[in-house]
Design a binder for these strands. Sequence first.
DNA 1: ATGGCCTGATCTTCAGGA
Length: 261
Amino acid sequence: MVLRVATWNVNSVTARTERVVGWLGSAKPDVVCLQELKTTDEGFPTDQVAALGYEAATWGTGRWNGVAILSRVGLAEVRRGWPGLPEFDGVLEPRALTATCGPVRVTCVYVPNGREVGHPHYDYKLSWLDSLSRAVTEPARAEVPFAVLGDFNIAPTDADVWDISLFADSTHVTAPERARLADLEGRGLVEIHPRALKYDKPFTYWDYRQLAFPKNNGMRIDLVFGNEAFAGAVSDAFVDREERKGKGASDHAPVVVDLTV
DNA sequence: ATGGCCTGATCTTCAGGA
C-alpha cells in the first residue's frame, strides 16, 4: 500500500484549526505528527479531524508544547513519552507520543528549544535527546517500519540555515546538538531528506519576523529519521512550502514522506 | 518607511518561540 506520513509544527492547533483541517483535506496524509498544540487534550479539535476520517492521539497540557498523532489507517499502542523522559523545572512536558498506525510505528517529537547555549533549557535539550536515543534503540532495530519525526530544533548541517554566519554561539547548530542526531544514526536510523519544492534548500521553518519567508531566510529543523524498513520503503519526501504562505500560516511547513509498504 | 511577528495567559504586557 501507498502510505503518506507527515510531520508539522502547527504553532497552536487552536489558532490553526482551519488551516490544519484544510491541509488534511488537500494533502490527504494517512499519518500526521503534530507539534506545539498549545492546548489541552480536551481542547484538541478531535471532532473536526474525525469528520475527515482521522483518529487522534493527543498529549497536551495547556499553553506550551503538546503533540498529537493523527491516523486514518489505525491508531494503536499509544505511549506518552517513555520511562526516563527528563523533566524541566519539575514538569514532565508533553513532547513525545508514539503509536502504531497501520503498517508503521511512529514517534512524534517536539524537542526542547534550548533557548541559549549554557541555559538550563539547553542542558535539558541535550538530556532529552539522550533519552530519545535510548528510547528508539529497540524500534530502530526492529523489522516493523519505524520513524521518529518532528520538530527537532536542530539544523543538521550549516547548509540547513539561510546564513550560518548569523548563528555563531546560537542554539540549533552546535556540535553537541548535532552529535545527538549522529547518535540516532548510530542506532540504525537514517535521515530521510525531503525535496524542496522551491529554491534549493528544503527549509521547514521561517520566522514570522523581518520578512523571513519572502526572503527565504529559513531553517531545516523538522526532521524525519527512519529505520531500515522505513527508509527502504520511501518513494518520495518533500517540504510542503505552500502551506507556509498566506494569512494564518504556522511558522513551520509540513514535511511529507510517501512510502510503499 | 531601513524595521517590519505570533500565541495564549499572568491579559493593555509578558514569556517563549528559534
